[in-house]
């Protein structure tokens, strides 16, 4: 089979996996949020309300896809895809099981850091092309925020490159030892916070702050395009949780086959629940406080972690 066909197959599979992950993510968020808020959450459709998100998606697909009259039509229409595609692509370099990553490349870390960052362009374009002041402010906020948090997030991954001596995720997994957890704990905090900021979730959801900017950069989107934005958000959250589980908690923990996959998914679920928990507990930050956190707190912390790991390595 040719490379193109393989690519299409991978794309289809990845799309399906992300769609399912996002569906379960939305359902899980609503369930967890419900518990936090002393209510039950979705429960009518399917067992435990599992089909609720499916019904919601169906509704969104059937809704009219409205393009504002003033919008820059072509950019407006393509922006959700520019947001979603890089997030979807980031799933392919995660090592899901022992010796298996859909895209096994020697620059995997670089890929994970660089590719999802492209989605900021989509967010900016979405805000800009809507020709709506709320959306413009939301898009600009998102651009500033995502670019700022890119830095501590990247720095927080680098200790693993140092420790494993490779940028290939599978190599890092092979090298992974349990004492990396305490050693890279500062980096984990940095990674966790900046990942939440990176996917624009509370308390860092300023670009879409509903109480200030209505819905920020996707204020004018409806139907399926809006759903794509939501999928990108949940997909980003799932990817961040998976990546956190892979590096900081050993991913499949050297376990073979399905057992390792289950281990990975279990840890990633815990991380995702923690992200949801944070979102539903904390108020939103203010733009200047957000930037202050990125540049004055998280970046120095990540650099400190890098120094600690650098000092420790010669004794290993």
């Amino acid at each position: 089979m040719s490379g193109l066909a393989w690519g299409a197959l991978y794309g289809l599979a990845a799309g399906l996996v992300i769609a399912i992950a996002a569906l379960i993510g939305v359902w899980g968020e609503r369930k967890v949020a419900g518990r936090i808020q002393m209510r039950i959450g979705p429960q009518e459709l399917g067992p435990f309300g599992l089909l609720q998100t499916l019904a919601d998606t169906l509704k969104l697909v059937l809704k009219e896809d409205i393009t504002p009259a003033a919008a820059d039509v072509r950019i407006f229409r393509i922006a959700p895809l520019i947001v979603f595609a890089p997030i979807a692509m980031s799933f392919v370099i995660i090592p899901y099981a022992s010796g298996f990553a859909p895209l096994d490349t020697s620059v995997g870390i670089l890929f994970f850091m660089a590719v999802p960052a492209i989605s900021v362009i989509g967010v900016l374009l979405a805000g800009w092309s809507s020709r709506n002041t709320y959306a413009t402010i939301g898009g600009l906020r998102a651009a500033a925020q995502m670019i700022s948090y890119e830095l501590p997030r990247t720095l927080s991954i680098l200790p693993f490159v140092l420790l494993a001596g490779s940028m290939r995720p599978l190599d890092i997994m092979d090298e992974w030892r349990w004492w990396w957890i305490p050693l890279t704990f500062i980096a984990f905090i940095v990674y966790f916070i900046s990942s939440i900021a990176e996917v624009n979730r509370g308390p860092f959801d300023l670009p879409e702050a509903e109480s200030e900017l209505v819905a920020g950069y996707f204020a004018d989107y409806s139907g399926i395009r809006w759903a794509i934005f939501m999928m990108a958000e949940y997909g980003g959250m799932v990817a961040a949780a998976l990546f956190g589980a892979v590096f900081w908690f050993g991913g499949y923990l050297h376990l073979p086959g399905a057992l390792g996959v289950i281990m990975l998914i279990a840890v990633a679920t815990l991380l995702a629940v923690a992200m949801i928990w944070v979102k539903w507990t904390f108020p939103r930050m203010r733009p200047d406080q957000l930037m202050g956190t990125a540049w004055k707190v998280l970046t120095p912390m990540a650099l400190l972690q890098l120094v600690i790991v650098g000092v420790v390595i010669p004794w290993l």
Binding site: Q37, P203, A209, S211, P283
Partner: peptide, 16 residues
């Protein structure tokens, strides 16, 4: 006021 700052859970507790 809590919902304005994005704290949705406080909103629910207060309305309860």
């Amino acid at each position: 006021a809590a919902a304005d700052t994005g704290a949705a859970t406080m909103f629910i507790y207060a309305f309860d």
